[in-house]
């Protein structure tokens, strides 16, 4: 256990993370081959991190435009097979099938989510997004139990994808993309005996799935469906995840990314303020790499995911200079405000 007496106060150095995230966005990354099919997710972490650092303005307009163009090149509109949305990378796009539909050019729900948020972060107005096709395709991904699978075929289903689906409906302002009642029922089934929420029914409670569940309820305006006992249990379970830093499960070590997953869920349930520790930021700062980025644990290698969630977690702690979060959508209030303005025009 760390106390204020034994631990030196660490300083947050935003410039380091700006450099690191720009490198991710623009540079060639070695050793991340396994992330190839999820390049959009990496891009999203880089852009979203820069957004929290309030650095989007400083990306040259031409570069923004080229990224937006690249994102739109990943849009699949296939209303015959209902597999519209966004791809994870260009690896299914060839000179021959560019702009056309072809086998395995199936959108993935996590990539659609990442691309839509990235477009919003970059200031795009989503006018080139085929909203109707994406919403229609989304419907086909919901399973009879209410959960969502990630893509048409070959992918698992769980609470992560429920959250992605809820975000897509919220961003596109069209909930006809899912059976909301069925989703609510699924979430209720995933609430465990200990108060938290698992990735599926009867699975172990986890802060990641608890966040996804609470955000999905909040985005679809269904938080009030929680009973008083469920609400109390959820808050208690989440509050117990704090011990010098946030963990994701009981008796698991604290980890940078849970400063957002747990912290964000607490924010959604209006309980973050119950945590009182002036050194709340110190654990996250211990995972700050001297060359930029945040890592999972102290003295491990930083990665884009933990960098983004580290920044998001610090933002919840009101560190100055960081944009405030709109936790339900896992984005900043700045981006959420832009979205609301765009949606006004759709009405």
């Amino acid at each position: 256990m760390f106390t204020s007496e034994t631990m030196p106060s660490l300083k947050f150095v935003p410039e380091l993370h700006k450099k690191y995230l720009l490198f991710i966005l623009n540079g060639k990354l070695p050793n991340l081959e396994s992330m190839e099919t999820n390049r959009t997710v990496l891009m999203y972490f880089a852009l979203a991190g820069l957004d929290i650092l309030d650095e989007i303005e400083n990306i040259p307009p031409e570069r923004k435009e080229s990224i937006i163009k690249w994102i739109y090149s990943l849009q699949v509109v296939n209303e015959e097979e209902n597999i519209s949305g966004f791809l994870g990378s260009t690896n299914l796009i060839t000179k021959e099938n560019r702009g056309k539909n072809s086998p395995y050019k199936w959108a993935h729900i996590a990539n659609t989510y990442s691309c839509l948020l990235s477009l919003l972060i970059l200031g795009d107005d989503l006018s080139r997004v085929n909203r109707k096709a994406i919403i229609t395709s989304l419907k086909t991904l919901q399973l009879p139990i209410g959960s969502f699978k990630g893509a048409k075929e070959g992918v698992e289903d769980d609470m992560r994808f429920v959250f992605c689906a809820a975000c897509i409906c919220y961003i596109l302002d069209d909930w006809s993309g899912m059976d909301v009642e069925l989703m609510v029922q699924f979430i209720m089934k995933c609430i465990s005996y200990d108060g938290g929420v698992g990735q599926g029914p009867e699975l172990e409670s986890h802060s990641g799935s608890t966040f996804c569940a609470m955000a999905s309820l909040a985005l679809s305006d269904n938080l009030h469906r929680l009973t008083k006992a469920q609400f109390t249990g959820l808050r208690r379970w989440l509050l117990c995840r704090f011990d010098a830093g946030f963990s994701g499960r009981p008796n698991k070590p604290i980890d940078t990314c849970y400063s957002f997953w747990t912290g964000g869920a607490l924010k959604i349930l209006n309980a973050y303020q119950f945590i009182e520790d002036p050194n709340n930021d110190q654990f996250v700062l211990m995972t700050q790499d001297k060359y930029g980025g945040f890592s999972k644990w102290v003295n491990t290698v930083p990665d884009p995911m933990h960098t983004y969630f580290g920044l998001a977690g610090l933002s919840l702690m009101n560190i100055s200079g960081l944009n405030k979060m709109f936790c339900e959508l896992n984005t900043t209030r700045r981006v959420h405000d832009c979205l609301k303005k765009i949606q006004e025009k759709w009405k």
């Binding site: 081959e33 190839e36 099919t37 891009m43 880089a46 080229s66 690249w70 090149s73 796009i93 060839t94």
Partner: peptide
């Protein structure tokens, strides 16, 4: 080999090998 078309200005470019479980 079929070349991937990454456009002119790649974003988060990665050197990789492909393997698709569904395929």
């Amino acid at each position: 080999p079929v070349k991937q078309d990454d456009g002119e200005e790649p974003v988060v470019a990665i050197d990789y090998t492909e393997a698709f479980w569904q395929y």
